[in-house]
Amino acid sequence: PPCGPVENKKVLYGRQPYPDNYVDRRFLAELRRNVGVQQLRYWSVAREAGLVGQQVSCVAVFVALWSSLDGGALPPAALLWGGLLAALLGYGLHGALGGGTGGRTRWADLQSAAIFLAFTFGFSPVLKTLTESVSTDTVYAMSALMLLAHLLFFPYARPSPPGSLSLNAALFGSVCLASRLPGALHAFAMLTWALLLFALWPCLLQRLRDRAPRAFPWAAALVSLAGVGGLSGLWPGGSVLLLLTLLALTLACPLLLVRLQRHKDNIHGPWDEAEIREDLSRFLD
C-alpha cells in the first residue's frame, strides 16, 4: 500500500490513495467487550428455572390423572368436581390478583367457559370411537410426541397467553389420550383437566409472577410436588426420575449458567451493524 502523508479516512466517497479494504493501526482501538451484560445471580435464575420445572410436572400430573382414570382408580365424577373446584379457586385468585387489567369481562369469561364445556361434552362420544382402529402404541407414541412438543415450544419467557403451537400440541396429545379412555364422561373429564392444566394454569401463574413475586416460587414448588407425588403412586421409579430431573432443572442448570457466565466474551466495535437508536414510534401513528 502506498504510504503517504495523507491520513486515511474511513469514507468510501472520497478518493484516497488506499484500497477500499485498507485499515490502519487505529482499527482495534475502538474494540469493546461485554457491553451491557447483566450479571446473573444464582437465586434469581433458579427462581425463573422453577417455571420450566413446574411445566414438566404439569405434564406429569396430567399423565398421572389419565393413568388413574384409565385404571379406574379415580371415578370421572370426582375428577370433574375436583376440576370445578380448582377452576373456581383459580378464577377467584385470578380476580383477586388482577385489578382492572385486560379487556375481558366476566360475561366473556362465562361465554368462553360455556363454549368449552358444550363442545367438549358434545364431542366426547365422538372422541371415544375416534382412535378405535388405530393401535394403542401409535396413540401413545403420538401423545408422547405431542406433549414433548408442548414442553419444547412453550413460551417460557412470556407465558401469557400460551403460544398457540405449544397449546395446540398439548391439546392434540390430550385428545389422543382421552380417546383411549373407557367412557364418554371419562374423555370429557380428561379434556377439562387438559384445559385447566395447559391453558388456564399458565395464565394464572403469569399473573402470580407479575403481581405476587413472592408467592410464585411456592406455587411452582407446589405443582412440582404434586407431579412427583402423583407419579409416585403410579410408577415409583418414574417419580424418582422426575424428582431428579426437577432438581437438575431448577438447581443444577442455573448453577452451571452462573458459572459459565465468567467465560462470556462478546466483542463490539465499529464493524457492528448500524443500530437505529431514535424512537420511530411517532412516525408510525
Binding site: 363454549i115 368449552f116 363442545f119 367438549t120 364431542f123 365422538v126 372422541l127 375416534l130 398457540s164 397449546l167 395446540n168 391439546l171 392434540f172 385428545v175 389422543c176 384445559l195 391453558a199
Partner: peptide
C-alpha cells in the same frame, strides 16, 4: 378458538 380448532383438527 384454539381449543375448538384443535379439537376439530384432531377429529
Amino acid at each position: 378458538q384454539l381449543f375448538i380448532g384443535t379439537l376439530l383438527f384432531t377429529i
